[in-house]
Structure formats: C-alpha cells, structure tokens
Design a binder for these strands. Structure first.
Length: 288
DNA sequence: AATACTGTTCGCGA
DNA sequence: CTCGCGAACAGTAT
C-alpha cells in the first residue's frame, strides 16, 4: 500500500521512538514474511533508519540491516507501555485514531523496554529480510534514484523518459528508473502536469518533462506534510495507529465520475498495464 | 454467486 | 534486451 511518503513517515516515527533500543525477541507468525535467521539480530541495538524508495532499512549495531517492504497491505504498528512515553507521529492536521481491527500480525519485534513493533500484512505480499552490507547493496542495485535524493535530476528524468516507448505512467511507477512513485502519486502528478497516463513516454517534450519532474517532487513533499495517504480500508496508518490526511487532497486518484477540480469535466478511469488510471479527459489529452 | 477490484513487484514466455 | 500478463494473497464491492 504505501508509497514513498508513507514509508518516509514510518521512518521518521520509528526514528523518534525506536532509536538505540535493543531487539530482545522476535515472533514470526508467518514464515514467508521473514527471510533470514532471527538469531542474527537478537540483542542488537538499532543505530539508524534509512529508506530507498518504498523500502525501509533498520540498521543494527552489528552492521546487519533489517530491510522491510510493505507491498500492498503491510503496516508497522508500534505499541509501548505506558502510553504517555510515546512520541507523537508527524501526521499533519488530520490524524485521528483508527481502531486496530482486522489486523493480520505476521512478525512481532519485542524491545528491551517492553515495547513492540508489529508487522501486519493482510495479503502477505510484504516481507522482512536480513542483509549484510554487501548483500544489501546487491539487493538494491537495480533500484533507481530515490525521488527525494539529489540524484533524481531533471536531466536524468528527461533522458529516462526518452529511453522508452512504454506509457508514461508505467515508466513513473517502474522502480528501476526512479524509486518511490506508486499508483496514487503517479495519477495525481500526471494530472497536475496535464499529461495523459497512456501517452508514450518518449513523446513527452522537454518542457512537459520539466513540469512533471517538478510536480512529482511537489506532490511527494505535500503528502508527507499532510501525513501521507490513508485511503480505502485504512491500509496505511502511522505506527501509533492514527490516520494520515493526504487522502483529502487527492486530485484524480479514485475520483471516477467526479468533476475535475480544474474544468469540471467528469474524471475517467482506464487501465495502464493492468493498473487503474484516473484522469481528466479534457485537461489530459492523448495528443498533448 | 461469481467476478472484479485493491496503495506492489516478480517471473515467465513471446 | 523489452514488454505484457498472471501470480503471490485476502478482503470488499458490484
């Protein structure tokens, strides 16, 4: 479920709450969700958190990394007692508590102070893997520059778009080119840039590419400020169980049949290599 | 009741 | 190499 903004918010939360804590116990409730030997990370202190695109790294004292991918329905929920010790989430102005029902715990980490981090994952697509440094580099070598990194330059962006005739939305969501964009932010960034999702990537002009590059960064940062997107069925929650607020600012994503905020034409939905694309047929023409 | 849909990515075969 | 499509899985909506 989560894209870059949601994973980044989780990273910030965990950095505020879990830094320097020691892993005391790990319960694996679904074998498929945890790859590696949990004994390797027992009694290890957490020294930092990092992120590449949608992947979250928990870096340990012994140089091993716990790499987490939440895929469609993964959640990380942090429970601590007493509650008063919890540092609030950075969740924007709309955050409110969501009752934790229909959870699907797959892996639970217990820490020295009795707090615990629960990995929920309804559909079991997500995973947690243990890596050494060289293994991590190898595992991430085919992932493109993170949207928020300085390597995500305008020039690299345009050159990449020129390199393929697949649809622009497919390219935006392909993590080997740029890391972090998923279906929500691809839809809304294309709308803001007045680009049809199914136009051939190499047909994007330099000027349009510049606008799209700017809008991608804008919308990703905007979502982080708004606390990320808690869309259908509360599949994204902050680790303290509160909701995000960016869903109230969706432009076209899941807005089928609603009027375009720009011209009031009704939003349409089509498929782009198997995924739903939402767009305004008036603002986002096929022939730009 | 059966089918389609869902915030993701990987592997297969063309 | 590139591409599109189904699979991995569980739940809800039509």
């Amino acid at each position: 479920m989560p894209e870059l903004p949601e994973v980044e918010l989780i990273r910030l939360f965990l950095n505020n709450n879990l830094l320097n804590k020691t892993i005391k116990k790990i319960e694996v409730l679904n074998q498929k969700s945890f790859i590696g030997d949990s004994k390797d990370i027992l009694n290890q202190k957490i020294i930092s958190f990092s992120r590449l695109g949608k992947q979250l790294s928990i870096n340990l004292e012994n140089n091993l990394t716990i790499l987490i991918h939440l895929k469609m329905t993964g959640q990380l929920i942090y429970e601590i007692t007493p509650l008063s010790k919890r540092v609030p989430a950075e969740r924007g102005i709309f955050g409110h508590s969501i009752p934790l029902k229909n959870q699907h715990p797959r892996v639970i980490f217990f820490f020295s102070d009795k707090s615990k981090l629960i990995f929920n994952d309804q559909r079991k697509f997500g995973w947690i893997k243990i890596f050494s440094n060289p293994e991590l580099v190898e595992a991430q070598k085919n992932i493109g520059p993170d949207i928020l990194s300085k390597n995500f330059t305008n020039k690299y962006f345009y050159n990449t778009l020129q390199s393929s005739s697949r649809t622009i939305k497919t390219i935006l969501m392909d993590q080997k080119y740029f890391a972090g964009i998923g279906n929500i932010y691809a839809n809304d960034a294309l709308f803001l840039s007045k680009i049809h999702p199914n136009i051939s990537s190499k047909k994007i002009t330099k000027e349009k590419s510049y606008i799209l590059h700017k809008n991608i960064k804008k919308i990703i940062k905007e979502s982080i400020k708004n606390g990320g997107s808690t869309a259908r069925d509360n599949k994204y929650l902050h680790p303290d169980g509160t909701s995000g607020g960016h869903q109230y600012f969706f432009r076209v994503y899941q807005k089928l049949g609603e009027p375009c905020s720009n011209c009031s034409t009704l939003i349409k939905s089509i498929k782009t290599s198997g995924r739903s694309s939402f767009y305004c047929p008036n603002c986002q023409k096929l022939s730009h």
